[in-house]
Amino acid sequence: MQIAIDLEASAPPFAQLIDQIKRAVRANKLQPGDPLPSIRQLASDLDLNNKTVAKAYRLLERDAVIQSRGYRGTFVHPDGKINCAVDMNAWAEEKLGDTILELRSAGVTVPEINTAFRSAMNEHSGD
């Protein structure tokens, strides 16, 4: 199973990595429990920074598409295929959209929402 990164594509390399690993899991090219290359190996092979691959793996782990098992390495999550369908970006947009609609219908202005959003982000950005 091969992965390809185009440095000139509009999507950043970490997003391309996430997208291709999810596609491989969805297409059963990667089965639950299959081992994945280490961050260092993938970064070296693609000539990318370790942090770029680490970021992709961290987000995939957050979405429960892959799981890290300490020194044994990283593997495809047992529920990886189902979890691939969950689009965290779309979900975040939907939740925010609902909240904005609720605030607007209560008469809160757009600048007030912006200020509140920034304030909330500052308060919770460490989470």
Binding site: M1, P37, D45, D47, G73
Partner: peptide, 17 residues
Amino acid sequence: MRQVNTVSRRTADLQRR
């Protein structure tokens, strides 16, 4: 060879080595 390499597309195996 690495310095003059202008290919923007890079590939790798998704297999642990």
